[in-house]
Design a protein around this nucleic acid. Structure first.
Lengths: 254, 254
DNA sequence: GTAAACCGTAAACGGTGTAAACTTGAGTGT
DNA sequence: ACACTCAAGTTTACACCGTTTACGGTTTAC
């Protein structure tokens, strides 16, 4: 069984092909071209049906690319956040959020593919991908570290709506959820709420559904992030974090 | 010139065709079928190129349908809000928001077409449509009525970021902006912020980018709306409005 | 060394948006 | 009433798309 030990030649080749598929797809996306099986295949020097050895449908190609680009993007802004020491999760979150937004505005087509894609209807396949979303894991983890350090308040299990309670006890986005004690799962509610806020502004800005000048000013995003300092127990760090945030936003205008 | 007086027979026929295009497109969308020129044309008993007498490209068809469906949806939840008297804008806003969400979850493909569509890149055409978005007008107007009645605080012009100030002075989404005194344009900032919050949760839920159980519980949406009661000066109405909101949310679970 | 598994091809089917040329029929001016 | 105009359709054609099928070679494994 070479699945865990050294991969065989064929396996390496196959993995490389997968990488190239993602790479080429990302290039097409960034060029503004349509993401299509034929275009990807052509640029790889193959014919379209050959791609069916790697993905079983166009939708699966999209899912693959979305998943990998999410992973890559997460690594990107995680790297930016690592400018700050590991014992400063609040600073890291601030930087990561700003990087997330910067990425979403710089590569709107990638953002759209990953985050503004209906994930609900087809049933099971995409739901599972959502479960292992890299960005989801990363932000959940940061938030858990912040709770560990700043002890922001969160609802107890019996304060939660029954349906929500069920969801935080058996979470779809597990992240490090197993590391979190059962009674402390209320933090996940805070996670969901803050993710909703972050996702909201960034999607609004990336999709352009408001005044472009307001987007470029960054004030909508700034205000939204600042609103969340309190609920996350970061009031004492306010000045420092806002400074950090403004420094990040200044990068966008250069 | 019969453009303003009685439309000529040809004009009426043409308008009817436009209506049918939108109608058929909506039907296709709701059936889960792809929205395509050929499908629309076929269902109308025409050939695809004939549609080019009405729209100059596929994108323009999409824009047309999006615009009209936005108008129709706005009329729909405006009608629901009119259960409440005209001098209760807060109640109307509460009901309208809940209706908006209900519509977004019930007709996700319509929602996606209108609100989760990149509007930024192509340049001018779609930007103009955004300007005259019915939903934008409706919510702006309600918020202005609430300000008129409850006098929630809003930033003065010199408190605003210069770029944002420019945007509120010469707004892209005009609504009844001309009715608002120049110095009072800061309310538009509150409008943008609350629109961002509403758009955010609803898009998150409609696109399914979080735990489906949390979506069905409605708690994420509920919490977001409640968070905005304070900033809109509706703290005194809190109990009544939350009751109204919960009554609306209860409809979804039946 | 041989059988099997894998990776690619070519050909084909039905679908898409779009451009061009052509027909038809209703509306208009004299 | 007749001719003219022009809008609203048609047919044909092209290039692209996802997908299926049948068919070759290579590479691997026993």
């Amino acid at each position: 069984m070479s699945t865990t030990s050294t991969p065989t030649r064929r396996e390496r080749q196959r993995a490389a092909t997968y990488d190239e598929i993602v790479e080429v797809s990302a290039a097409l996306l960034d060029e503004g071209a349509e993401l299509s099986l034929r275009a990807v295949a052509a640029r790889m020097g193959m014919t379209a049906p050959a791609l069916y050895r790697y993905v079983s449908s166009y939708q699966e190609l999209v899912d693959l690319v979305a998943f990998e680009l999410d992973k890559a993007a997460t690594a990107e802004w995680a790297a930016e956040a690592e400018r700050l020491p590991a014992d400063d999760p609040a600073g890291r979150l601030t930087v990561a959020c700003a990087s997330f937004r910067r990425w979403a505005l710089a590569k709107p087509r990638r953002f759209n593919l990953i985050f503004a894609n209906p994930v609900a209807d087809p049933g099971a396949a995409r739901q599972e991908l959502l479960t292992q979303s890299s960005s989801g894991h990363y932000f959940t983890d940061l938030l858990w570290q912040i709770q560990d350090r700043y002890h922001f308040p969160y609802p107890s299990l019996d304060e939660l709506d029954p349906v929500v309670r069920e969801a935080v006890l058996d979470p779809l986005i597990p992240a490090k959820a197993e590391h979190i004690d059962r009674e402390d799962r209320g933090v996940l509610w805070v996670y969901m709420r803050s993710w909703s806020a972050l996702y909201g502004v960034v999607t609004l800005e990336s999709c352009g559904h408001c005044d472009p000048r307001v987007i470029s000013s960054g004030q909508l995003f700034r205000a939204t992030v600042i609103d969340w300092l309190g609920p996350l127990g970061l009031e004492d760090e306010r000045e420092r974090l806002v400074g950090l945030l403004d420094a990040e936003l200044a990068k966008d205008r250069s």
